[in-house]
Design a protein around this nucleic acid. Structure first.
Lengths: 344, 344
DNA sequence: GCATATCGTGGCAGCGCTAACATCAACAGG
DNA sequence: CCTGTTGATGTTAGCGCTGCCACGATATGC
């Protein structure tokens, strides 16, 4: 597994022999056990260096019944959100000294979730983070009697399983309030698929913000996150004359919608203002650059791992008692040129 | 790790006891060893079912010195290409019964690569797939005396380490030839960063296709894959009057370029034709829909895993001798509305 | 009929490590 | 001077599984 001048890689006993101690003392040094004299510790570390010794994770896990790998159940990692979340989790896990094993859900239902979690359990992970943005996935997860520490990335906070997510309601409120502040009186919303939890949060934020301003909510439109569905919704809106502001459920749909408007001679933001959600890297370079809501996925990842380590160590006797992280990560409004005061 | 009616999960001995055999026979059944009588096998499998027994991967790995996990070294998994490749590899690995552990390269240099490979080696992976699209990453990989089976995803075929990739030269040729076929005599190219191997392949395909048609190559422009760099290149090209066709190194840059052209009243495809590369999901919904080159990442993943299993089993005595997969995956041209015959 | 090959099975050892207990020196207090 | 206490180390026993060898039981050869 590792290059050596010898035929085989060094094991703990080789280190012990070279340092003139027992293998147990080596183990103690490696695990920061307090009662090792500084002189011995140094001798052991020197031997470790000399032999380029690396502990065997499997043996460690077997003996200690605990692995240093967390599992991540993900879904459609081509999408910007899940991909970013996965990356954030991976970074945070590695910073905490954990490896990351992933399973991508092929079908988002009960059996798919069971299969994914079993695949991870078979790898003896210490805990799992489930990126379960859909109601079906979340339901499957919560219905499962899982024997592993788990954390979910979903807006459905409050179940048995700790959940972390960007505050979708606040994000939507930022978007809608921005449009209202510009003077728009009617803000349309093209939501994501109804079976996504984030969709619910964004719809709720949209509705409540309009209500708070005593404005009626126009009919809700539903897309599927794709640019295509944004395009189609855009075609519908283009037929109306009472459209001045749209809050799109994500940037891709905003992109598609802008294309539909462009085809019909509707100018953005002169005729219609559009706000997206996500702040994908391309958002800045659309025509015009897209005003949108940015989510801090690295922060989501960090809190997930913090919550997971907390859950893992809760089973341990000597738990350091980590604080429970705030489940809601705050989104921010990114102002660009796709929004302006209404002119018609 | 797994829910039981009992306090603890069943182990092999529990299964053996219930089936009335030795734990060794259970092991044989689980490992498809030939010499077990059908009656015994069935009894064991029934006991496995009844106890919901799942073998412990760590113990298996320890005893057999072989794990069922492959490592993937990835880079910038937010980018469409790497994310798709990762997904393809994950699917293929899981289909082959392997788990997938990932490490994302934070810095693409020698030490970053060493750290990533060591992190995976520490997890006792059976082999690694390195998504190393940059020359630095590839160089680091090839310079390392790694003790694990490895496969690279890169266009630099021919080293010690088996490599799989989409045929970039052919992809570029498809793009440029398409523009030539439409009647364009001068095809510009905005390449990706020069330190990416794929960039070299695409430049080579562009150059050689022009040469084959006895046409001079205009000055090469270099971007960084981002829509922003495409926008900037677009601003430069917009100042010239001799631009009728551009082959962009990826779809994001094509997107940015289209925005620059749009701002300067240059119509696509009426004034300038643009071909992208990747076929990102949004490509179909840009203004106008983007003609581009599609890469089959699932196929790349499948061949990577095939090559990796071949390498892993080469170390084994009883290797089933898998065939060596073709290292080049063929790309395809996707025709949309961003290309047309020249009018000026 | 006996020696020999073959099959199905069990026993034993060991993978590399950690946990729990055992040991032993050094030192404190009475 | 003896006992109790503490800190540093070694010893022993597994964790749950697979590899190898051995064993008895059939099947096969002459």
């Amino acid at each position: 597994m590792r290059p050596t001048s010898q035929g085989r890689a060094a094991v703990m006993n080789d280190v012990a022999r070279l340092a003139g101690v027992s293998h147990q003392t080596v183990s103690r040094v490696l695990n920061q056990h307090p009662s090792v004299s500084p002189a011995t510790r140094e001798r052991v570390l020197e031997a470790v260096r000399q032999l380029n010794y690396r502990p065997n994770a499997m043996a460690r896990g077997l003996a200690g019944r605990r692995s240093r790998v967390v599992g991540v159940v993900s879904f459609d990692t081509i999408l910007y959100g899940p991909a970013s979340t996965l990356l954030g989790i991976e970074r945070a896990a590695r910073a905490a000294g954990y490896g990351v094993s992933i399973v991508t859900l092929e079908q988002v239902d009960h059996s798919g979730m069971v299969a994914a979690l079993e695949a991870l359990a078979d790898q003896s992970v210490a805990g799992v983070v489930v990126i379960a943005p859909q109601t079906a996935a979340a339901a499957a997860l919560h219905s499962l009697p899982l024997g592993v520490a788990a954390v979910a990335v979903e807006s459905n906070v409050g179940g048995e399983i700790p959940a972390i997510s960007v505050d979708q309601v606040t994000g939507a409120r930022l978007a809608v309030q921005h449009l209202l502040d510009l003077g728009h009186r009617k803000v349309w919303h093209l939501s994501g698929p109804r079976d996504w939890l984030e969709t619910h949060g964004r719809i709720e934020g949209w509705r409540s913000t309009l209500e708070a301003a005593d404005l009626p909510a126009p009919p809700l439109m539903t897309g599927d996150w794709s640019a295509r569905s944004g395009y189609q919704a855009g075609l519908e809106l283009a037929r109306r004359t009472d459209v001045t502001a749209v809050f799109a459920g994500n940037d891709q749909m905003a992109l598609g919608m802008m294309r539909a408007f462009h085809e019909h001679g509707i100018r953005v933001p002169d005729d219609v203002s559009i706000v997206g959600f996500d702040d994908i890297p391309e958002a800045e370079f659309l025509s015009p650059p897209l005003t949108t809501i940015r989510q801090d996925f690295d922060e989501v990842g960090r809190r997930c791992i913090a919550a997971l380590l907390r859950a893992i160590e809760a089973d341990l006797p000597e738990g350091p008692d980590r604080p429970e992280p705030d489940p809601y990560v705050a989104p921010t409004l990114v102002l660009r040129r796709s929004t302006a005061a209404p002119k018609r």
